[in-house]
Simulated scan of single mutants.
Amino acid sequence: MTDDAYLVLLDGPAGAWGVPPAAVGELACMGTPAVQGWLDAQGVTSSSPRLRLLPPEETSAIPEGAERLPVPLGDEELSRLRHRAAPQDVSRLEEELLAYRSSADGRQTLLARAAAAGVPAHRIAELSGEDLATIKASTS
């Protein structure tokens, strides 16, 4: 696994992985000379339907031979990307986890629901602001 997210240019339909960069919101990397040069070399713009952005933990999904470019994202940008890349039911739970930071009501139930839905413990900790060890202990 790499620490960078990846811009990927697909040969065919986008499928169900990655997200269009525009769906994540403004990304600092999109205005860099490296990204602009790569897009120009590929003959596409940042709004191309073939262009997808994947978080670091999903880079194994990149098809062999696909044109790709590692891009560093800030913490907030990476959090937005992960949220957009998550399945809709997981995205809803992630929104609840973010809201959880300011409220302890239903804490144990929400953490258990998130774990049962497949949200990884490290992501629950990141979104809820809870310590990772606490999350692991409360969801096992």
Rank of each mutant, 00 (worst) to 15 (best):
W38K: 11
A34D: 15
A14K: 05
A41H: 14
S47E: 10
T45H: 07
T59P: 02
V44T: 02
D11L: 10
G65I: 05
P63A: 09
G43V: 13
W17P: 01
A28T: 03
L69D: 07
G65E: 06
I62R: 04
R50F: 03
P56D: 10
L27I: 15
S46K: 07
L27Y: 10
G15K: 11
R52I: 09
R52D: 10
R52Y: 08
P33A: 10
P20T: 11
G65T: 08
A34E: 15
L27V: 05
G43T: 13
G15R: 15
A14I: 07
R52H: 08
L9W: 13
L53T: 01
A34V: 14
S46Q: 09
L10K: 10
L27M: 12
P21K: 06
S48N: 02
A41I: 04
G15A: 15
P13A: 15
D40L: 03
E57I: 05
E57C: 04
V44S: 01
Q42D: 02
V8I: 11
A61Y: 06
P49N: 02
E64F: 13
A28F: 09
P63I: 00
V35P: 11
G18S: 05
E57Y: 13
M30R: 14
V24H: 13
A14E: 14
L7C: 03
E26L: 14
A34R: 14
P49E: 04
G18H: 06
A66E: 05
S60Y: 08
L51A: 00
G65F: 07
R50T: 00
L39T: 05
L51V: 08
E58K: 07
A16Y: 11
A41M: 09
E67S: 11
E67W: 01
L53V: 00
G15Q: 10
A41S: 15
V35T: 12
M30C: 11
D40I: 01
R68A: 08
L69E: 02
